[in-house]
Design a protein around this nucleic acid. Structure first.
Lengths: 103, 103
DNA sequence: GCTTACAGTAAGTGATGGCTTACCAAGATT
DNA sequence: AATCTTGGTAAGCCATCACTTACTGTAAGC
C-alpha cells in the first residue's frame, strides 16, 4: 500500500521476475507460472503481495485474471527514492560550496 | 553490488531507518545505534548489507567509521525502476493510439 | 447439467534472516 | 604501557517467509 510494501515485494527474486514479466506484457497467472520454476499457487501468493503493495493489478476476464503493472505504485516508489536523490545532490553541492569557501 | 541487493537491503525497516538517517547526515555506527531500538552489532550487520549493496560507504576516521550514502548505488536502483517506468509510459501511449484508431 | 480450465486459499515444512550476547581487534587517551 | 572507545565478527535463537500439495470456488465449453 506504500513504498515500504513495494520494497518488500520487490526484494524477492521470484516476485521481481513476475513483476518484470508483467511489465513487458500483462499476463494471466497460469502463463506466468508456466515460465517460472515455481508452482502456480506460489505465483498466486506472490501476486497477492505485489497487489497489496500496489505494484500490480488484475483485470478479471472470465475465470482468468490478467495482471498488469499499476503505474501509481511504481510512481510512489520512485518518489521515495527521489527524496534521497535530492538529499544526495544537496549535500554534494554543499560540499562544493564548502570547498569554494576554503581557499 | 547491484539493484537486486539494493532492493533486499531496503526491504528491512531497520535498514531503511539507517539509510534514511545516513542520508540526512553521515554518522558513525555508535550514534546510529543510539537512536535505534536495536543493539550496535545489529546496526553493524545492517550496515554491512547496505554496504555490500553499494548503498552506503564508510570513511575511516581512527577507530570510527563514518557512514554516508553512496550516490552511485542509489542511481543504479533508480535506473532499474526507470526502466519499468519507461515501459509503463510506452504501453500507456500504445493504449491511447489504439483508442484513437478504433472509432 | 457435467466436466474442464483457471485461480485463489489452507496447512504444513524447511530455509532464511534479524536479533541478542559474548568476544576480538585496533586506534585514542591518559 | 594500561585502559577506554569504537566497531566488526561469531554463535545461537526465534520469527518470518517462500514453497509444496491438497482443496475450494467460479466461469466456459460441450
Amino acid at each position: 500500500m506504500a513504498y515500504q510494501d513495494s520494497l518488500t515485494a520487490l526484494s524477492d527474486p521470484t516476485r521481481r521476475k513476475i513483476f518484470e514479466a508483467v511489465a513487458v506484457e500483462p499476463q494471466p497467472v497460469g502463463r506466468l507460472a508456466a515460465r517460472l520454476p515455481v508452482s502456480r499457487p506460489a505465483v498466486s501468493q506472490h501476486l497477492k503481495i505485489l497487489s497489496n503493495a500496489g505494484l500490480v493489478q488484475a483485470k478479471v476476464d472470465g475465470t482468468r485474471r490478467i495482471y498488469a503493472i499499476r503505474q501509481q505504485g511504481l510512481a510512489e516508489l520512485r518518489s521515495y527514492l527521489d527524496q534521497f536523490w535530492d538529499q544526495v545532490l544537496a549535500s554534494f553541492s554543499d560540499e562544493i560550496n564548502r570547498e569554494k569557501g576554503k581557499p
